[in-house]
Design a protein around this nucleic acid. Structure first.
Lengths: 338, 338
DNA sequence: ATAGTCGGATACAACGTTGTAGAGTGACGG
DNA sequence: CCGTCACTCTACAACGTTGTATCCGACTAT
């Protein structure tokens, strides 16, 4: 079987603790002894048993990332970024999918499987304000996304309102006046949809444009098909518009397809802007202007914050923090100046 | 801190082993005792320490999935499927990204981090035939993808040649005769590109169509931009063609964009077929006909095979197996009958 | 010369769990 | 009435690692 400290110690003619000391770079080991131990380690191909180490130290070196599902590009790209950030810190990432299902999300929060890792980066979708208390968990937790405000945990997120306002203003500056929104959620306030819609309204307000409820397309989910369906419905109702703000890129791309199907031209007849800066937004026809919400920064910060909490066992850091990433408009072909 | 067996045992007035027996459903425990222990467990909110359990049992209940990168949709959807399959079996998945880089792939194979899990599902991209020996690893390993034939490990993959042949025949049956291939790799034989190109040639052969090297578009990577660039190059050379076979969906979608940019119509002037059945293939304009290579089946089988190997410590199962998934053509708008 | 310090190494216990061996109890058959 | 057996439970060791206490020798300061 796999070699242990005992095997190495026997071959090197030292105690197991000395081998352990060599491995952990404990300073007081004679160079000569160290060399002998190193040789033995290589000879046996010794690799430490991480379970034993975890048992001793109480830490595993892994973190959990819980998100709705990887087949949604936004979350796939988020996971990519989180894994890279974790790797830079020498940590490894375990992924749980919740499907955005509230029950499953609550289950993940208390799952024994979490004990396999040192902390959780959690992007909830189904949970609401009523579940805030469930976030009082006995392990380090960092939240992503928008569902929970003022929870008991650190929260890393994007400037939804400001960024959505900037996106809307971007369209207005380019001469668009009747801007459809695709992806709103009925009566939602605290989720991404609610916040982005608020940014939209702020921009209209600031520009002195009137808000027209007929321009708002509601969807339950944010898949491409929802964007297309919602757009088709608006087209069928004969609403007049000269621009579309997809509350995420996937919706925007779906809407763009529906617009083109209907014989309208993007961007000549209708300008389109999205939100998320997915990889695919560069390759649509026309390429999609969008908001880069700072995904890499979010991932990096979430990992750093979580690791801080993990390292901080006596609560020296203090209360839950809210951290907001920088956003940026990425201009492409779908929104030329008129 | 977290409760242990000792705490539960003390409260319930039994030995720790009895508590352990209750938890592991050992049959010979008096109902009365069992109930008392259960109560104590709930009272303390006891959850077993998985590190300790792992140390004892030698198993962690987690598996590693190593793949190029999650921001490639194909791999994101593969990861999604693997995680679901693992979850059904009560296992959890840790993800390593290799970026398709050979050095990084070899590193992953020997990383100590692997010891945090019971086995590896590995989708290599950079490794070649010369590295086959590196796959002789002292832990359960299941390979995905095409780079390695006849390796020392179980291999779950798709019927690349047959499926590519079927895709090509699908175009031929619909009256197309000059079929461009996008995404070929120079001189490659064993990779997905080489195999799919072989299927293409077989189909031409069977239909009595001549192979024209001018119709083959080479790319190094399989991103959307590569598909677009390669297609633009062929268009610039003035090659005549009436169909495009993208060796994956991403390439096909990129190529489709380039075709439309050039003023040609899909599918009227050019039919397009892809490979992978990504989610997004349904939502392009026109929607993309493609090959579903059996991704769910591959994920399910890979997990099942790996778990078998993990459970089979005395090598009762025997030699490495090759398992091929069923494929299927998914017909959409990009390939109407002429 | 002696106490104190430092470098270099070791023995032992402990992390929390489960397998093994075995002890105690009662029922049952001969 | 005793041996056997099934049931119920316990004590102990072990998984492989690292922290703590400790030991020995050599060097420094007084």
């Amino acid at each position: 079987m796999a070699a242990t400290l005992h095997d190495v110690a026997r071959i090197a003619g030292v105690s197991i603790k000395t081998v352990s000391n060599v491995i952990n770079d404990y300073p007081h080991v004679k160079p000569d002894t160290r060399a002998r131990v190193q040789t033995a380690i290589e000879e046996l191909g010794y690799q430490p048993n991480l379970s034993a180490r975890s048992l001793r130290s109480g830490l595993t070196g892994a973190i959990t990332l819980a998100l709705p599902e990887l087949s949604l590009s936004y979350f796939a790209e988020l996971a990519d970024a989180v894994i890279r950030a974790a790797e830079r810190a020498g940590k490894v990432v375990l992924i749980e999918q919740t499907n955005g299902d509230r029950a499953r999300e609550l289950e993940v929060l208390t799952s024994p499987r979490l004990k396999m890792t040192d902390g959780l980066i959690f992007s909830p979708l189904g949970m609401g304000m009523d579940d805030v208390a469930r976030l009082e968990v006995p392990y380090p937790l960092v939240l992503l996304g928008e569902r929970i405000f003022d929870g008991p945990a650190d929260h890393v997120t994007m400037r939804n309102v400001e960024a959505a306002r900037a996106a809307t203003e971007f369209l207005i500056e380019r001469g668009r006046k009747r801007i459809v929104v695709i992806g709103a959620h009925e009566d939602e306030v605290i989720g991404s949809a609610g916040l982005r819609l608020r940014g939209y309204m702020q921009a209209l307000d600031a520009a002195g444009l009137e808000f027209d409820p007929a321009l708002i397309g509601y969807t339950t989910l944010w898949h491409r098909s929802n964007g297309a369906t919602s757009m088709r419905a608006l087209l069928a109702m004969g609403v007049e518009f000269d621009a579309v703000f997809g509350l995420n890129d996937t919706l925007a791309l779906g809407a763009m397809r529906a617009i083109q199907e209907a014989g309208l031209r993007v961007p000549d007849d209708v300008a389109v802007i999205g939100f998320d800066d997915l990889d695919e937004a560069q390759y649509s026809l026309p390429s999609l202007t969008t908001v880069n919400p700072g995904r890499d920064e979010i991932a990096e910060t979430a990992v750093a914050t979580l690791l801080q909490r993990i390292g901080d066992r006596d609560g020296a850091i203090g209360d839950a923090r809210q951290i907001l990433a920088r956003y940026e408009i990425v201009e492409r072909e779908s929104t030329p100046p008129l």
